[in-house]
Simulated scan of single mutants.
Amino acid sequence: MPTLSRAMVVLMLAVAAGCASLTDGPDRPRTAPELVGTYEFGRAGFAETVELHADGSYTRTLLGHLGQDSASFDGTWRVEGNRILFTPGAGLPSSSAPEPSEAFFYRHKPAFAPQRLIKFGRVDDWFVYVPQASR
């Protein structure tokens, strides 16, 4: 039994090592001006960018691969505490907007990740939207 317990602890530490902490910077809510910029996300054949504009609008571009065309969507965004909420543009389906996300500092730069993927104050690095060209 002690061997099994040690194996579980080692496994949990290995999983936690590949996660982003939501406290990698100032421990305060992010402000809208701090979040303005272009973010990228992409792994395993899927990539997108999200541009958060200072006027409260956004442009989300799903980047095509394997012969698919890219697609862009727009809408508005706002900050509520640590959350970023997205509203799709007129006539666009709700699925065209990024998911409600939590803003935090990742490697000391503003970043965000879908709230549903954040567990116990951590999120897998794969799901973090980071400032463009910072990976």
Score class of each variant (00 low, 15 high):
128 V>E: 04
121 G>Q: 09
71 A>Y: 05
2 P>C: 13
24 D>G: 06
76 T>Y: 05
87 T>Y: 10
20 A>G: 07
59 T>L: 11
42 G>V: 01
108 H>T: 08
51 E>G: 07
27 D>G: 04
12 M>C: 12
27 D>Y: 11
23 T>L: 07
2 P>G: 14
81 G>V: 02
32 A>C: 09
39 Y>C: 06
22 L>G: 02
105 F>I: 01
36 V>N: 07
59 T>I: 04
53 H>R: 15
110 P>T: 01
6 R>I: 06
27 D>L: 08
114 P>E: 12
63 L>E: 12
11 L>G: 12
57 S>M: 08
88 P>M: 04
121 G>P: 07
104 F>V: 01
122 R>C: 01
23 T>G: 08
10 V>K: 09
105 F>A: 12
131 P>E: 06
124 D>V: 15
76 T>L: 10
83 R>P: 03
112 F>L: 03
122 R>F: 04
45 G>A: 03
80 E>W: 01
107 R>M: 01
39 Y>Q: 06
67 G>A: 05
92 L>E: 03
33 P>H: 13
129 Y>L: 12
48 E>T: 08
92 L>W: 12
12 M>T: 13
16 A>Q: 10
20 A>F: 05
9 V>P: 12
63 L>D: 15
98 P>Y: 06
22 L>V: 09
127 F>W: 06
26 P>F: 14
76 T>V: 08
31 T>R: 14
109 K>F: 02
11 L>H: 10
67 G>R: 15
117 L>I: 06
